[in-house]
């Protein structure tokens, strides 16, 4: 499917481009903008990013496949990320992980059939003092209990 940036996003890319002496340096910002618009980074999206920045597609591919926050397939409307690293683990993160897995009925990096939820076990999110924690899309939920997790997941419509 063909992909084109919106006018507004083209302006944002231009601003990102101005931060750096090279076009290549704006690739990470541009991939973020593309992911925001398209939901994930397909082959066509990568081609358009390369086009807009005037760089070889190989560079786009190399970045997209290196960084874990870029997704090459569609994720759920709500991307649920559970940190299970040490500080969270010490405060029950694996119980939360099992709870979320059970409730959503999916495994790590899977999407529910209705496309509403996806799930990811993540590394330390910088919330260790407020553990355990879960992030949904861009928002952090900290100092969680099983009840709070239940409440958060139920509130996502």
């Amino acid at each position: 499917m063909e992909f084109k940036f919106t006018e507004e996003n083209l302006k944002r890319i231009e601003l990102a481009r101005e931060k750096y002496p090279t076009a290549l340096a704006a690739v990470m910002d541009t991939v973020y903008i593309a992911q925001e618009q398209n939901g994930y980074i397909s082959n066509e999206v990568m081609e358009e990013i390369a086009n807009v920045l005037g760089i070889d597609k190989v560079y786009v591919l190399s970045v997209v496949t290196f960084y874990t926050m870029y997704h090459t397939k569609p994720m759920g409307k709500y991307h649920v990320q559970v940190c299970t690293n040490v500080s969270c683990m010490l405060r029950g993160a694996y119980d939360i992980w099992d709870q979320v897995k059970g409730k959503l009925g999916i495994e790590n990096m899977q999407v529910t059939p209705d496309g509403k939820f996806s799930l990811e076990e993540v590394e330390c999110m910088g919330a260790c003092g407020y553990a355990p924690m879960v992030a949904v899309n861009e928002d952090y939920f900290e100092n969680l209990t099983k009840d709070k997790v239940e409440e958060i997941l139920d509130s996502l419509k």
């Binding site: 750096y20 090279t22 190399s62 926050m69």
Partner: peptide
Amino acid sequence: KGAGAYICGEESSLMNSIEGY
């Protein structure tokens, strides 16, 4: 803005990341 890679905290990796690699 980084994109999820612990290694980018290492200073030379951080510079490669800024350069778009």
